[in-house]
């Protein structure tokens, strides 16, 4: 088809714009200098330093616990919402499910901050409040993926199950659930990725005692920038990249529509 050299050249320039900065981060994570201004020599010492850093391990553990629990909760609630949104015409449910992800994150962050502190007190900000906050915004993403999966299916399968005498529960357990499983898994992985990467909502709901990896990056970037940030960033990139590859293997169709 029509692809002028100008079009190809400008598209390549944009792809470079997307990748060069990340390449710079990775390259300088191996730089044997405290400053990221020029290349001095190859070292893996920043990674070694990172692994020995207790604060960092604590943050990594927090991030992992939050992401696992929030993804699990959001998967259950989001799957329910996705099914309900597909089967029943209601304006309320889509509004409640989709608004939190359509608004700027800071709005959900500050409203949950007010809610937690006025309802449960100044000391209530903890791992649990972060998990609840993450669940709230992940539900929508899971619901969208599950609904998309259902929308692509032939409705006559469910009618056949009913005609053959299956109760609604049997239809759900034996027909619907196995069919939507790839969507549910993709939704769970998506929720996990969003949770482990989230900065803004965590920032407002974590309080002082719950460092997570993104919060740690933020502090490092604001206080003292060392190649340790590059090393941590590179490791985080590898983690999310792995998750995307895994998700793509399990549910190739569902991942393409995540935009």
């Amino acid at each position: 088809m029509r692809r002028s050299p100008l079009l190809v050249a400008s598209a390549i320039a944009v792809y470079l714009f997307l990748y060069v900065p990340l390449a710079v981060v990775v390259v300088f994570s191996f730089n044997d200098s405290k400053l990221s201004a020029e290349w001095v020599g190859f070292t893996t010492s920043w990674y070694a330093k990172l692994v020995r850093n207790d604060e960092m391990l604590k943050a990594a553990t927090n991030s992992l616990v939050i992401a696992v629990v929030a993804a699990a909760a959001a998967t259950v609630l989001g799957t329910m919402a996705g099914i309900a949104m597909h089967r029943y015409k209601s304006r309320l449910l889509p509004f409640m499910v989709l608004t939190p992800i359509a608004m700027p994150e800071i709005l959900l962050g500050v409203s949950l901050l007010i809610f937690f502190i006025t309802t449960f007190g100044e000391e209530s900000l903890s791992l649990l409040t972060v998990i609840v906050a993450h669940t709230t915004f992940c539900i929508g993403f899971v619901a969208i993926i599950v609904r998309a999966r259902l929308a692509g299916m032939d409705e006559s399968i469910f009618e056949a199950a009913r005609d053959l005498g299956a109760t609604p529960w049997q239809t759900f357990r034996l027909v619907t659930l196995p069919l939507i499983t790839p969507g549910v898994i993709a939704g769970a992985l998506m929720a996990f990725t969003l949770s482990i990467d989230d900065f803004v909502i965590t920032f407002f709901t974590a309080g002082a005692g719950v460092p997570t990896l993104p919060l740690t990056i933020y502090t490092m970037v604001k206080v003292a920038v060392t190649p340790e940030v590059n090393a941590l960033s590179t490791l985080l990139m590898l983690l999310t990249l792995t998750l995307i590859v895994v998700a793509g293997k399990i549910a190739p169709d569902a991942i393409g529509g995540k935009g």
Partner: peptide, 13 residues
């Protein structure tokens, strides 16, 4: 796939 803050940090460098 990279963290939002990492992408911002890249431009700092």
């Amino acid at each position: 796939a990279s963290n939002f803050l990492v992408r911002v940090y890249a431009w700092m460098i």
